[in-house]
């Protein structure tokens, strides 16, 4: 139970002598604190709903921009000169990047409002890891990063929400690529184990030889909107929600996520997912 929950769940009436003014003052303070917490929670809920609505509404005009640009790129209205083509491709890639960031905000808001449901199917983690490697091929090439895949031969298929697991791997791999200097290495590993409660767990590791994360930031990075460097001039941009979403999606499956890293020595992100989802 969090500290906040303990405070809110405290009985408001303290055992007291009826006429002790100090106890009466404390009771009044506690009552007002409880009301304030309820008010803050309600406002937080409204903000989350606002985020979900606005990100959904932003998608619509963006969709139109991208479609118009693709109509031009695909020569549907006639051929473009090479320079016009370059410009139109810029509109499309900028639009798609913006769309994916808006999508992250929407996923975050739905997660915060407990509106994310799992749709489990049985699949091999190898398929997801290979799919993510292919999707990131051009980025890896651009940064001259070597990606290796190491999947223990006896890893069983898992029952989980495939899209959401792919989302987690995608966010971790995206960070690994973003925070590793050209010429470095990135890897995806999968293994399995049985935990203390005799649950079979899949373990996925996404590692890199990049900038690394200082120990004091290991918790911070999983918190919403937190970025180790949040200055406007920071070299790595993004919504700051990637790891929060990853944690939310892993926990939704009953798994855990953590990082092992030191500044300057690269990072190894791990997450576990139960091999079977309870009914």
């Amino acid at each position: 139970m969090s500290h906040l929950e303990k405070v809110t769940n405290m009985p408001v009436s303290l055992e007291s002598k009826p006429h002790d003014p100090r106890v009466a003052a404390l009771e009044a303070q506690l009552k007002s604190a409880v009301m304030e917490i309820a008010e803050l929670r309600a406002r937080d809920g409204l903000k989350t709903q606002f985020l979900a609505n606005i990100s959904h509404d932003l998608r619509t005009p963006l969709t139109a921009v991208i479609t118009h640009a693709e109509i031009l790129r695909d020569g549907i209205l006639g051929d473009l000169t090479p320079r016009q083509m370059e410009s139109v491709r810029g509109i499309i890639s900028g639009g798609r990047q913006l769309l994916s960031q808006v999508g992250e905000i929407l996923t975050y808001a739905r997660g915060a409002a407990n509106q994310l449901a799992l749709v489990p199917t049985r699949f091999a983690i190898r398929e997801v890891l290979e799919q993510m490697s292919v999707l990131n091929e051009s980025l890896l090439k651009k940064k001259r990063l070597a990606l290796s895949l190491d999947i223990q031969s006896d890893v069983p298929p898992i029952v989980a929400d495939r899209e959401k697991i792919a989302h987690v791997v995608g966010n971790l791999l995206g960070n690994a690529i973003d925070f590793t200097a050209p010429g470095g290495q990135v890897w995806l590993k999968a293994s399995h184990k049985v935990d203390e409660e005799k649950r079979a767990l899949l373990i996925v590791e996404v590692g890199d030889t990049g900038v690394g994360i200082a120990a004091e930031h290991h918790d911070l990075i999983f918190r919403e909107f937190a970025q180790v460097d949040a200055t406007p001039s920071r070299p790595h941009h993004g919504t700051g929600l990637g790891l929060t979403i990853a944690r939310r999606l892993v926990e939704l499956h009953g798994g855990q996520i953590w990082v092992e890293s030191k500044l300057g020595t690269g990072s190894r992100f791990f997450f576990t997912v139960p091999v079977e989802q309870p009914d």
């Binding site: 998608r59 619509t60 963006l62 969709t63 991208i66 479609t67 693709e70 109509i71 790129r73 695909d74 549907i76 769309l99």
Partner: peptide, 8 residues
């Protein structure tokens, strides 16, 4: 179709 569907 999930928006935006590529034009082609």
């Amino acid at each position: 179709f999930v928006k935006p569907v590529p034009a082609r």
